[in-house]
Design a protein around this nucleic acid. Structure first.
Lengths: 343, 343
DNA sequence: CAATGCAGTGGTAGCGCTGTCAATAATCAT
DNA sequence: ATGATTATTGACAGCGCTACCACTGCATTG
């Protein structure tokens, strides 16, 4: 039809406008705010666009409008199951929208994060999702100078840059320990790896609860900066047994460590929960089908991602949420691995 | 210093050029191909850019050059551990480059994939990474019309669209079953969930090996389209026991199913491997620390991602690989769960 | 020594779209 | 009926960058 004359045969807005018998600017409006057109023209443009198979050129749009439809997402790790759920929420939430996700990995480094924020700033994203609340001062300054909606996810804190979706890791850990104490466990160990800010807060919750019950003993705590894994769970639990052979329960900062601990117990013929109770964190799917089923803290990771991205998209379009800080909570999933202690 | 006059205070190429005392086009060249400048000007532009904190506007560049520096990546699932490793490889591989990754989720739907490819086509990506080789004819046509390097990952097949990085799922499964048969296992069950193309190929490998040894029996096969999970592993294994109570081994198409099977065995006091041997697939980290350690097929997921993205980036820049199809292989990790059968 | 090549540089002209503002048509209150 | 307001539309002028081609000056060739 020799209509599209660009090298690639790409259909431009002008062609659509011509076919619809309107000016290019009107056609342009159709794609951004159809309500603004009279019904007649709206339909004509719609038909023309469909007929020509028109797809807007995002680069041209970004250049002309001086903004992009990209939402930046900073995540500290791809390995972690936790973040894969968050990501799924983010991608599902943004799937049908006009926004596209630009994902980057900070590798748990706040300096890397700062560098990536700098890069993002130059690209003028429409919105941003960042993990955690422990940004450097520099990062914080960049975030505040960035004229777009921002959601911090995974945890809550006193002064959000803008919006926040998370839950209290501290309170969750406190509740875990309180639960164990109420069942008469006394020598409750703590197993932590990676020790990122969220894990630190779980340690705080543990410490608070133990101190309050006068059960605190630093020998009960194993915390290593090495990455977490099931195997590491077994290793750390073995360390703990060495330091404190009289433990009667273990709180693992994540489910992989808990599973590793369970395997180590099986290897050593330690009965769970009769000899040692085990509690994990995140409630990954496998926790319920382990033998015995493992107690854990259910966190709403998928919802966190979905809520965060929805808040950002809404805010970009001027629909600010009523409350800018959302606590998604957690739920203690009590299973046999922390069943009542024999008297 | 009132130099940047754009509303946002953004520094433009023109400013850099002015400060460096060169024409804008020369400054532009500096960022794309510094070799083309004389050393003197190169340094002057470099200094000017640093001094002004210049960052190129990607939208303007994309519009003017009619190409982007975006590499599209189509993945069928974010939940799956397998893909999180692949993604990590992709992001690590592209991290320091000028390319950015545009990730989309096909949710294991080839129609969704087709739609997403259409979208990508309109954005003229610099390269593309797609999962698998089972595209629709439409998708295939789009891919072929797309004038950019493309890598298909996860498996190998006879006619690559362009490049390929993967391994033979069929051969891997065949080797698993041959291994079990060599240990005198005879009633070897198959547990499959999701049944995506890769899993189908593992079933083919299983079937081939069983038939060749005259051990094939359709009652030994459990295959369901529902998503995979540890819990589902237990459920499917229970089904299998119902259909074929005399099984002496199980090949699970992934490690989650294998772990679920192990748990189900523990629940039913079935000894592994004395009563039933278990083999998984992918060799996730936890397989080695389970009790007993679980046999699995190690696949090079991280390398697959990293290799794929490197091939795409190289090809974009004209460095075509010597061979366009790369077989990353696999390795049978034999552990106690498939130890030799008592005679 | 003219013809040729080539590295290095700059001028011109957009890439495809949208912000701004003005113009017009349609609707309303008085 | 009148001016005022609102809905709808279009003209213009770029957004910041690069493709394309032309030009310069110097080295190489026979």
């Amino acid at each position: 039809m020799a209509r599209a004359r660009t090298s690639s045969g790409k259909v431009r807005l002008t062609e659509v406008a011509k076919l619809a018998g309107v000016s290019p600017i009107t056609a342009s409006r159709f794609f951004r705010n159809p309500e603004a057109l009279s019904p007649g023209k709206r339909e004509r443009v719609e038909n023309a666009a469909r007929q020509l198979g028109y797809v807007p050129d995002l680069a041209a749009r970004a250049l002309a409008s001086r903004r992009t439809e990209v939402i930046g997402v900073l995540i500290p790790s791809f390995t972690n199951n936790v973040f894969s759920d968050v990501l799924r929420g983010i991608y599902d939430g943004s799937g049908e929208s006009r926004y596209s996700i630009q994902l980057v990995n900070t590798h748990y480094s706040i300096l890397q994060e700062e560098k990536l924020l700098q890069l993002f700033k130059a690209q003028r994203p429409a919105g941003l999702v960042v993990t955690g609340i422990n940004q450097t001062d520099e990062s914080r300054a960049i975030l505040e100078s960035m004229n777009c909606p921002i959601v911090q996810i995974m945890e809550l804190g006193p002064d959000p840059v803008d919006m926040m979706v998370g839950f209290s890791h501290n309170a969750a850990a406190f509740e875990v320990i309180s639960h164990l104490i109420s069942l008469n466990f006394k020598r409750i160990g703590f197993l932590g790896a990676r020790m990122d800010p969220r894990v630190q807060r779980r340690l705080e919750g543990y410490t608070d609860a133990m101190k309050r019950a006068s059960l605190y003993d630093p020998r009960l705590i194993i915390a290593t900066p090495v990455p977490t894994s099931v195997t590491m769970g077994g290793t750390l639990f073995a360390d703990l047994l060495m330091k404190a052979p009289d433990i009667d329960a273990v709180f693992c900062v994540n489910d992989d460590l808990a599973l590793g601990t369970l395997f180590e117990c099986q290897r050593r013929q330690i009965q769970v929960p009769e000899d040692v109770a085990i509690v994990g964190f995140n409630d990954l799917e496998y926790m319920a089908s382990a033998v015995p089923p493992l107690t854990s803290v259910r966190t709403n990771r998928y919802d966190m991602g979905k809520t965060a991205i929805t808040m950002v998209m809404d805010a970009i379009e001027g629909r600010r949420p009523a409350t800018s800080v959302i606590d998604l909570g957690y739920e203690l999933m009590i299973r046999r691995s922390s069943a009542a202690r024999r008297a």
